[in-house]
């Protein structure tokens, strides 16, 4: 079983997300440690991209901050940093990036570098199921999970995506799970369909932020992720965000 799946299966987890290089690559390393120490099961680290088409405004702006920071933030800088961070934390690390930076880096080289630096999985929002063949072979060779994405409008596509999913299944935010943190029928149906097809853990991304809402979501999911909250703390407190991130993650972990 992959480290990613193992970290999630049979319990309820909180997953942290942050954008690398915001406000600096060294601070990202510190923040990863804070997130892990506060009890997150996995840390997702975004490699900043010029055109993060699937992100909302909060993460988009974090990408801009990271890329325009002094010295910028390159894929190599992220790998170097992750290589250091993975030695300080026990939880699996997952990279979130778009396909072009991976393609340009070279699929084989990227996956080899993931293994070398202690990355366990990658999430690529613009890699559709149909195009997964792009780097599946290389990912398998180095034991890196390509996290499958499912949307509440995926419908029958779940039947082909879920059985092949490794690591965890990431349920994308949509109108059905971003708004008020209420569970929608469509979300429940989507999770229900996935459960019938696979034991791969299900992680839901959504926009809720109160402990009560968290508890509701964690009832049906193995893990939850709130992509914007840690990023917002970094936006607000910059280099001093560490303590705030720890407190926030701790609160979320405790309410699951």
């Amino acid at each position: 079983m992959s480290r990613v799946k193992e970290a999630l299966i049979g319990k309820k987890s909180f997953i942290g997300f942050l954008t690398a290089g915001d406000p600096s690559i060294d601070k990202t390393e510190d923040f990863i440690v804070e997130i892990a120490n506060a009890g997150a099961a996995i840390v997702e680290i975004g490699i900043p991209f010029s055109d993060p088409i699937a992100e909302g405004p909060v993460v988009q702006e974090a990408n801009v901050r990271a890329l325009s920071a002094p010295g910028g933030c390159t894929t190599d800088m992220v790998f170097d940093m992750v290589g250091r961070a993975s030695k300080k934390v026990d939880v699996p690390l997952v990279l979130l990036t778009y396909l072009n930076p991976v393609y340009k880096y070279g699929y084989e080289r990227f996956c080899a570098k993931c293994k070398e630096t202690g990355v366990d999985g990658i999430i690529i929002p613009d890699l559709s199921y149909e195009e997964k063949g792009e780097l599946l072979e290389e990912a398998n060779k180095y034991g890196i999970d390509i996290i499958s994405l499912i949307s509440t409008n995926s419908g029958d596509r779940i039947n082909m995506i879920a059985p092949e999913a490794t690591g965890y299944i990431y349920i994308l935010p949509s109108e059905d799970n971003v708004a008020e943190g209420e569970l929608s029928g469509k979300l429940l149906e989507t999770v229900g369909r996935i459960r019938k097809l696979t034991d791969t853990p299900v992680v839901i991304e959504f926009g809720a932020n109160t402990p009560e809402q968290i508890a509701r979501y964690s009832d049906i999911a193995d893990g939850i992720i709130i992509e914007t909250r840690i990023v917002k703390l970094i936006e607000k407190y910059g280099a001093d965000a560490g303590k705030h991130i720890y407190d926030y993650v701790k609160k979320m972990v405790d309410s699951i």
Binding site: A54, S128, S151, S154
Partner: peptide, 11 residues
Amino acid sequence: GGQYIPESLMN
């Protein structure tokens, strides 16, 4: 060419 897009657009 191809179809390199988020899952939410595939259908």
